[in-house]
Amino acid sequence: MSGEIEISIKNLNLWFGNFQALKNINIEIQKNAVTALIGPSGCGKSTFIKTLDRMNDLVDNVKFTGEVIYKGRNILDSDTDVVELRKEIGMVFQKPNPFPKSIFDNVAYGPRVHGIRDKKTLHEIAERSLKGAAIWDEVKDRLNESALRLSGGQQQRLCIARLLAVEPDVLLMDEPASALDPIATSKIEDLLHELKKDYTIVIVTHNMQQAARVSSHTAFFWLGEIVEYASTIDLFERPRNKRTEDYVTGKFG
């Protein structure tokens, strides 16, 4: 695997209480590329992706060991400023979760909590972010309407715009299209191809065709382990591991 590395994960283990949800994960995430995570439900994909922006901290009883090296530091260190970290590594969730506020206030939310008050600057950021998420044309005339009036697909792109507004480097997406219809889904996928020019993207998906379409590298998770990590074409055309083969050919899972 060539290309610059954005995040490098070494010997990552994670427990919820006594249950080990991640086992000895070792992978490197390429910069300015889309990395897909596939695997059956409950195999630890969401847990893994949440480790990358320390969202698992919100869970009681969580313990982890190992290293997640990003910009030369181990973000799992207890002295990591998670608030700062989450400005650099942002997350889009499975279910679109716009705030019950106007479209504009949603996009301006991040910049505002980070101290930007100037109306003009906020408007510029909002426009740039909404354009970046390919939703500007659909909402430019209704920025003061509630975000909850948008369709599911629009809400999800708004959530992406909201994230772009804080100018992160890495976008984590946990099944961002699983609640959307095929047209909304393909809009998101097109968007991913645009975004990867400027961002490093890690996407969890249940849909193998989607992983195949959007990503350059794919990791196959199984029972908390990464069984195989390879370029997407290799993983889908000639998996090395029997389990991967059985999974991608639909023989289980």
Binding site: D53, R86, K87, F93, N97, P98, Y109, V113, L163, V166
Partner: peptide, 12 residues
């Protein structure tokens, strides 16, 4: 999700 959304944007 709303809390996660907000925290995920780097809000305290």
């Amino acid at each position: 999700e709303l809390r996660e959304g907000s925290l995920g944007l780097g809000a305290t």
